[in-house]
Design a protein around this nucleic acid. Structure first.
Length: 341
DNA sequence: AACCTGGACAACCGCCATATG
DNA sequence: TCATATGGCGGTTGTCCAGGT
């Protein structure tokens, strides 16, 4: 018959992930690579369902993820693409390889939607009542409303076609995997000295941030244990992860960290050492994003430019025209936007 | 100081398409 | 071919925290 069951429904832990669980998951994926999520909780001993593991990895722990601090450029792209694609967050996220669909979705719901509403309200007041053009700063192309279904039909193709993506200061016109590769090169794994990369919070930072609290707690617990009683059973939360799959370097650092009371500030280097740059192929897989670690040759083949579809062309052109306008949406509007296509 | 409210974000839920035995 | 698990995606909820009353 079909596949064996994914995971037992009993004993599945829910709620926020602990730093220990993150460490276990990251360590496991570092060794085995992402994918085959069903085996992850089994092999790691994590009391999480495979789905939860996958989501945690793709949305939070995956290398190359940039979190928070959306730039005006990114805002513009999100707004622009949302007007084109609707709430297809995964598709939108594919244009911003460093962002997760969940992040973009949250940002849209909590920031951009309000911002646009506000903008529309202002536009409604000052715009002529019968103005055919939208009061929104999102100028939907004449064909856009009528080509909604076209977009739906083609958006998959669009994802495989040339895409407008942005880095911190520059717009690139490239296919997502190519950009992902570029991002990988600019990622915390890279040592190219690019100053812009320092502003990108990597998952290493995320993990180290988690570890900062974790290590601090370890340290505090140790200190508390030293001058009070033996640790309470509740300290199970801080118990070391199952040893079976942890790398030797992890053990080395873990024991060094906890044993010698390594200060929290050491955690970043700690993890950088623990997770050296993966080989290019694996990097590409790791950077794949949104769980599409291997969605076939179609997504892996390209680095070459290809002809633009009408929608892509519009996106391309409109973005150039409107980025400046959209910058006004943002409080911290930047005056000069270097564009490089 | 206590309580309330809203914002921000992580995680879960449910559906769907696809893969697999 | 069919039944079922898996992975992906979008919507929604839960939780934490900061600011206001």
């Amino acid at each position: 018959m079909g596949r064996p069951p994914c995971c037992d429904k009993e004993g599945i832990k829910k709620g926020p992930w602990t730093p220990e669980e993150d460490i276990i998951l990251v360590s496991y994926i570092q060794e085995h690579g992402p994918g085959n999520w069903r085996s992850v909780p089994i092999n790691t001993g994590l009391m999480r369902c495979s789905k939860s593991c996958r989501l945690r990895w793709t949305n939070y722990l995956r290398p190359g993820i940039r979190r928070g601090n959306f730039t005006p450029h990114e805002e513009a792209i999100i707004v622009h693409l949302q007007s084109l694609l609707g709430n297809r967050w995964a598709a939108i996220a594919s244009y911003l390889p460093q962002r997760t669909d969940n992040d973009i979705k949250n940002y849209w719901n909590t920031h951009l939607k309000k911002k646009l509403k506000k903008q529309q309200a202002i536009g409604a007041i000052f715009a002529p009542p019968d103005s055919s053009s939208s009061s929104s700063s999102i100028v939907v192309p004449p064909a856009a409303t009528t080509t909604t279904t076209t977009v739906d039909h083609h958006h998959r193709d669009m994802l495989g076609a040339n895409l407008l993506v942005s880095s911190k200061d520059t717009y690139y016109y490239a296919r997502p995997p190519a950009e992902a590769a570029a991002v990988a090169r600019r990622s915390p794994f890279a040592a190219d000295g690019d100053s812009s990369s320092s502003s990108y919070a990597s998952s290493m930072d995320n993990i180290s941030r988690l570890l900062t609290g974790f290590m601090k707690q370890q340290h505090d617990d140790a200190a508390a244990a030293a001058d009070t009683k033996p640790p309470a059973p509740a300290a199970q939360v801080n118990s070391p992860p199952p040893a079976a799959f942890l790398s030797p370097s992890f053990h080395h650092h873990m024991s060094a960290g906890t044993g010698s009371g390594t200060p929290p500030a050491a955690s970043a280097a700690y993890f950088n050492d623990m997770m050296p740059p993966p080989p290019p192929q694996q990097q590409a897989a790791l950077m794949g994003g949104h769980g599409d670690y291997d969605d076939g040759p179609s997504s892996r083949q390209h680095l070459q430019p290809s002809p633009l579809s009408p929608i892509e062309k519009w996106l391309f052109e409109e973005a150039a025209e409107q980025v400046g306008d959209l910058m006004d949406l943002s409080e911290d509007c930047c005056s000069s936007v270097p564009m490089m296509f």
